[in-house]
Computed example of a mutant assay.
Amino acid sequence: MKTFAYLAVVAVALSACGQQPSKGGAEKAAGPSASGRDQVWAAGSSTVFPFATRVAENVAKTTGGRPAKVESLGTGGGFKLFCGGSGAGFPDVANASRPIKKSEFEQCGANGVTDIVEIKIGYDGIVIANAKSGPTYNFKLDQVYRGVAAELPSPTGFAKNTYKNWKDVDASLPAQAILVYGPPPTSGTRDAFVELGLEKGARMIPTLDTLHGKDEEAFKARAHTIRGDGAWVDAGENDNAIVQTLTKTPNALGVFGYSFLENNMDTVKAATIDGVAPTFETISNGSYPVSRSLYIYVKKANIGVTPGLREFVNAFVSDAATGKGGYLQQRGLIPLAADAHAAQKEAATALTSMAAPAK
Rank of each mutant, 00 (worst) to 15 (best):
53 T>F: 03
186 T>N: 02
28 K>I: 12
268 V>M: 06
247 T>E: 15
19 Q>L: 14
287 S>A: 04
56 A>S: 15
27 E>D: 13
88 A>D: 04
173 L>V: 07
289 P>W: 04
179 L>G: 00
211 L>E: 03
341 H>D: 12
71 E>R: 14
200 K>P: 08
214 K>D: 08
180 V>K: 02
337 A>K: 11
174 P>E: 01
54 R>N: 06
326 G>R: 11
321 A>L: 05
305 V>S: 15
2 K>V: 11
244 Q>V: 10
130 N>F: 04
15 S>W: 07
251 N>A: 15
203 R>V: 15
126 I>R: 04
317 V>R: 06
242 I>Y: 04
54 R>M: 10
67 P>A: 09
41 W>R: 11
208 L>S: 08
235 A>V: 03
43 A>C: 07
321 A>K: 08
355 A>I: 04
120 K>S: 10
251 N>E: 12
251 N>D: 12
31 G>M: 08
14 L>R: 02
291 S>F: 05
98 R>I: 08
356 A>I: 15
356 A>L: 13
96 A>V: 03
295 Y>V: 07
196 L>R: 15
51 F>W: 07
308 G>K: 06
88 A>I: 01
282 T>S: 15
168 D>I: 01
288 Y>V: 00
319 D>S: 13
299 K>R: 09
15 S>L: 14
347 A>F: 01
181 Y>N: 10
54 R>T: 08
210 T>M: 08
237 E>W: 00
2 K>Q: 11
164 K>M: 04
218 A>R: 04
29 A>G: 00
180 V>T: 08
303 I>D: 09
191 D>S: 11
177 A>E: 12
350 A>L: 14
84 G>Q: 02
118 E>L: 10
159 A>D: 03
31 G>H: 09
202 A>M: 13
71 E>C: 04
30 A>H: 08
242 I>M: 10
354 M>A: 14
264 N>R: 03
168 D>T: 00
94 A>T: 03
315 A>W: 12
232 W>P: 01
4 F>Q: 11
242 I>E: 13
209 D>K: 11
165 N>C: 01
35 S>E: 03
244 Q>Y: 04
310 R>A: 13
331 R>S: 15
219 F>P: 12
157 G>P: 00
9 V>S: 03
331 R>Y: 15
247 T>N: 13
206 P>E: 09
175 A>Y: 00
292 R>Q: 12
122 G>Q: 10
159 A>R: 10
224 H>S: 12
33 S>L: 13
349 T>S: 13
318 S>I: 06
